[in-house]
Design a protein around this nucleic acid. Sequence first.
RNA 1: GGCGGCGUAGCCAAGUGGCUAAGGCGGAGGUCUGCAAAACCUCUAUUCAUCGGUUCGAGUCCGAUCGCCGCCUCCA
Length: 482
Amino acid sequence: MGLKLHNTFTRTKEEFVPVEKGKVKFYMCGPTVYDYIHIGNARAFIAGDVLRRFMKYIGYDVTYVLNLTDIDDKIIQRSQKEGVSTESITEKFSKAFFEDIDTLGIEKADAYPRATEHVEEIIVLIKRLIGQASAYQVGGDVYYDVSKFANYGKLSGKNIDDLRAGARVAVDEKKRNPHDFALWKNQKPGEPAWESPWGMGRPGWHIECSAMSMKYLGESFDIHAGGQDLIFPHHENEIAQSEGATKQKFVKYWLHNGFLQIEGEKMAKSLGNFRTVREIVKIYPGRVLRLFFLQKHYRSPIDLTDQGLQAAASASARLKIFYDKLNKVLGTIGNIRKEIDPKTLSKSETKFFDSFEKMKSALTEAMSDDLNTPVAISVLFDMVRETNKLLSRDDLTENEKMLLVYSKKNFDDFNSFLGLIDSKEESVDSKMVDALVTLLIELRNELRAKKEWELSDKIRDQLNAMGVVLEDKGRETEWRLK
RNA sequence: GGCGGCGUAGCCAAGUGGCUAAGGCGGAGGUCUGCAAAACCUCUAUUCAUCGGUUCGAGUCCGAUCGCCGCCUCCA
């Protein structure tokens, strides 16, 4: 079954057919680096990350580009308020952005173009639009003439007349049409500016994405993604600019993720419930946030609640405990034949193998159905349960050991795009910690042998309070971090 | 006003015409354990906001009603 994606442009689920066979050119609208990224940004970037990784997994050669908007009103405002340069603002928050997406387990994009590094390309594109009368200059400003683009409003399902009727913002008198938008903004005192044919100024917001996406991915490419709020006007305007200039289809598939609320309320700075990623990952690690988001469909609205995050944390812990245990058991098994010959399996082994094969295809199918991660994850939990049954036994047959290897292989495959287990994590246990915990376990087991339960329980409880969990298995005791 | 989305168990959430309505969290009981923990097993929606309609058959399609939410100039 092929991959299907919901295309905002057609409002339907469509079979994904790339512009160029086997390749995917994917542009994700990145952050404006004027503040720490918030939890809503995280959702969008996680969704993009999972889709990109899944496409790789099913064999596409994916080029993933995520831009950084490093010049705009909000950045200028903040720099003026703090009395520092715009560069010091954008540098600080770009760095923070990279740190944050790293804690969320998001893979590096192939390119992170910045608007200020592409002013030249932006100017070329604007000149092209002026040259064919799609844009006009008024003083030091340049506007896009919406009336010159027949399909304006197609993506967002709006028609210009309705918009005109609903316009509630004071119209800039320099514009010919109220919905014309700025491609180039004349410099105001104290603002950063670049030289251009229209004098000193800076790019409008929308034009950077057109210029940079086309530079890195070509004039016609596969996927352009972002939050639902970007549909209008941002992406609408990008289409107008790009197709107005090239006369070609700009983007084949437009993908938009749903919005997020905080405890039932819209997230807004004015409500004081703005939650940054770095604030939340202090309490819930990146893998928990990923699971929280991926247990819902990317296009649905989400309510971020503490109860919900805690549920995700429990579920995430279950996956982690499972995975660690699987690795531990496999570590004791040693080398084993990799290939499974279904003919040599016993009845119960065959049952395990067959159900796994079914689950594998169910999982891939769910992912292929417009990234149905909730279903994919439900299958993953089914796999965990089946494998746990084997893991709890200590009289494994050779075939069953092979099945465990096979289970891990599959789990790793799925984790390669879901990213629910962070192999980089751990490492909290230094040699010293390991030695100390081992010593305590030995002492406790001596006490247990003498049936001194009170003292031995005290050791276990105190360690638990410090985040070290002890698990007794007959005479052996294992430990792990909570 | 225009456009769009949603309402499924205590909570979260799949399912868009047809076997017993996925999965996670939480809860109850059980197996294992000295007791735990982890894991496993059983149970936890005769019912999908409400009311009509179409159909042999509807969370699933159509209509109405109620409730919630988003976008409509720079917030993902």
